[in-house]
Simulated assay, not measured.
Amino acid sequence: MPSEVHSLGGLLRIWRERLLPADVGLASSGLRRTKGLRREELAQLAGVSVDYVMRLEQGRSRTPSAQVVASLARALQLDRTETALLYRAAGLTAPSAGIVSQHIPPGVQRMITRLSDFPLAAFAADWTLVTSTQLWQALFQAPSVTDDPGQNLIVQTFVDGTVARIATPHGGTDGFERALVADLRRSAAELGGDGRFRAFIADVRARSPRFAELWEQGHAAAHRSTVKTIHHPVVGDVTLDCDVLTVPDSDIKLVVYTTTKSGPDAEKLEFLRVGAIRAEFAGER
């Protein structure tokens, strides 16, 4: 039997208690009898029930899925070593080098929390959405990862076509599609040994002739910044700068939309930001 401190429940309690609500972008309210995050706060961040967090900590549940472990690791802002320890405590094999990872380094996670006033999202190397701010969700009328895990920009672009209906890249869709595939090609150099990644590429190639055509051209390059017009059903068209930032020593890509401090586009973003805050507040009541 593992010692209490190295058990799954023990690790969760230790890591939960070292975080403050402000560290994860939550307001601190009411009398706090214990240090760190409350169980309900961790549950909210990880997208699981409070009862499930309690059962994990008490040892009544010992086999969470890899998806749940990844969500808990992000919520607890664990580094790679701690994340690997959490996987092992759950009886799972930790993601290794050469495998598509959804791990967000703690410093980057804190940065995302502090940049909640921007439409910002983090994507894995295969362009699977890992996390997004509420303003991102409001701007793109998209659910959170908690509500809809597995959202993937490649699929949305080449298979179901939702991206074309939501946003128009300046310079045309051809350049945007080529940039996405070239970035994915660049990732393939390091992820070619990941069976799930290879299966993902094969599936999209089979479902999208356009993707297959671009993939077979073999171009590889990092994704570049651009300008896009987002078509929103409430505020209308919003034109924003779109920048893709890479995280050193990580597969994570940050996509952030910005505009000048004043002007019609800034006013529309502010309207959506306030609406997102009100929606969150109403949901907590």
Rank of each mutant, 00 (worst) to 15 (best):
P64G: 09
R88Y: 05
G275K: 07
G47R: 00
R273K: 06
P106G: 01
R80E: 12
W127V: 02
L184R: 06
A142T: 15
I154S: 09
V69L: 05
G172N: 01
R110D: 08
V274M: 11
P169I: 05
V48N: 00
D51P: 03
D237T: 08
R198Y: 13
P95T: 01
A46Y: 01
D117I: 08
R273W: 10
S144A: 09
F281G: 08
Q109D: 07
A73G: 09
T157H: 00
V155E: 07
E267Y: 02
A138L: 06
A125G: 04
L42I: 07
G36M: 03
S101M: 02
W136T: 10
A90G: 06
A188M: 06
V68Y: 00
A70Y: 08
P95M: 12
A182H: 02
V247A: 09
V274G: 00
G218S: 11
V256I: 15
I104A: 01
R62T: 13
T133C: 10
L45S: 01
S262D: 15
I252F: 15
S61L: 09
T133H: 09
E4L: 15
A89D: 06
V53K: 01
W127M: 13
V155P: 07
Q58S: 11
D249F: 15
W127R: 10
S7L: 11
A221M: 10
S208M: 13
P248T: 04
R186I: 03
G172D: 03
Q141K: 11
M1R: 15
L129V: 13
D241S: 12
D251E: 14
L72V: 00
V274H: 07
A220L: 13
C242V: 15
G30L: 04
V53A: 05
H6E: 14
R165P: 05
